[in-house]
């Protein structure tokens, strides 16, 4: 920005009327209030995770703990399995996302090309699975009995490898890329895989980032398949491990109630908050890295429009 530009900006600023200032103030206040609405629950969550159970019951949720304790975090980390659970979750998130993306792209791209035969039938075949599925019992029998995948880390990846919704989104994204690009490459002698790898994928980064994030979040939050098919706690993903941890506290309370044991004040509310902090921590950092692709994705759409 040159000095001339700066002076112009200053002039414009000087020209701002009272109504504009009022408007700006209102906008800033509203946005600030919105930010507070987003931030306060999160601050409360973190504060509660460091609060004693008795104080939570007596004083409710606060923005700052009145009696600081790390008991809830000690319980989360003392159990000794959390590192392992993180390892399992990171493994299924990275491997799952990569393989899912590969499968999704390999299916979405051909379906986005007009010249492919039986495209409608294949599309319907996939769409059908969005409307109907085998149901829990047949799926369970298939995976546990016939495929013998119980207590196998891949059971948290393979059955959910392809999400039809994501596949259709990816397909539509590929369709939005001008056909002339691939035609030019075809004329230059490139075959379909080369076109996909060297022409389509480089211009599809926003779409890939979005779908990749969806898959990554899905795998990161994976617990249901673990609940169904995993018995060994060494293979528990983070979310199911955390779920079990809070449930085991409920079970301890239940056992104490049935056997008449005094067990003091176990962190119950605070451990829920602590586990939330522990589980959302890493995945929340992915957002800033992919945010720019969302923005560029929106811009691509606007230019085309």
């Amino acid at each position: 920005m040159t000095m001339r530009d700066i002076n112009q900006v200053k002039k414009i600023k000087k020209k701002k009327g009272a109504d504009a200032i009022v408007l700006d103030t209102i906008v800033v206040l509203v946005i600030s209030a919105f930010c507070l609405f987003c931030l306060i629950p999160f601050v409360m969550l973190v504060a509660t995770s460091f609060e004693t159970e008795i104080n939570i019951l007596r004083e409710g949720y606060k923005l700052w703990p009145s009696q600081f304790t790390t008991k809830a975090y000690q319980m989360v980390f003392d159990a000794g399995q959390i590192g392992k659970a993180y390892g399992v979750t990171i493994f299924i998130t990275i491997m799952g996302t990569l393989i899912s993306m590969l499968v999704t792209i390999m299916l979405a791209y051909p379906l986005s090309i007009n010249k492919i035969k039986y495209k409608t039938q294949v599309t319907f075949f996939i769409y059908f699975t969005m409307l109907f599925n085998g149901g829990l019992v047949p799926t369970y029998l298939l995976i546990s009995k016939y495929l013998d995948m119980r207590n196998n880390i891949w059971v948290m990846i393979i059955p959910v490898l392809l999400n039809p919704w994501n596949m259709f989104m990816m397909k539509n994204f590929f369709r939005s890329i001008p056909e002339e690009l691939s035609e030019a490459a075809y004329i230059d002698g490139a075959h379909d895989l080369q076109i996909l790898r060297k022409v389509i994928l480089p211009v599809s980064v926003p779409g890939l980032a979005t779908i990749g994030l969806f898959y990554a979040l899905g795998y990161w939050n994976q617990w249901y398949n673990a609940m169904l098919y995993i018995d060994h706690s060494s293979l528990y993903p983070l979310q199911y491990y955390i779920m079990n941890l809070t449930r085991s506290i409920d079970a301890i309370k239940e056992m104490a109630r049935m056997t008449g044991q005094a067990i003091g004040s176990l962190p119950s509310n605070s451990i829920r908050m602590a586990t939330t902090v522990v589980t959302i921590g890493p995945i929340i950092f992915i957002y800033p890295f992919v945010q720019k692709y969302f923005t560029s994705g929106i811009m691509v759409g606007s230019i085309k429009g």
Partner: peptide
């Protein structure tokens, strides 16, 4: 992207090793 994917694959393999080693 290529280098990112390579990095991810290596990381995943490392985690797969740690995830399975204790068992």
């Amino acid at each position: 992207i290529k280098s990112l994917i390579s990095l991810l694959l290596v990381t995943a393999l490392c985690f797969s090793f740690t995830a399975c080693s204790k068992s």
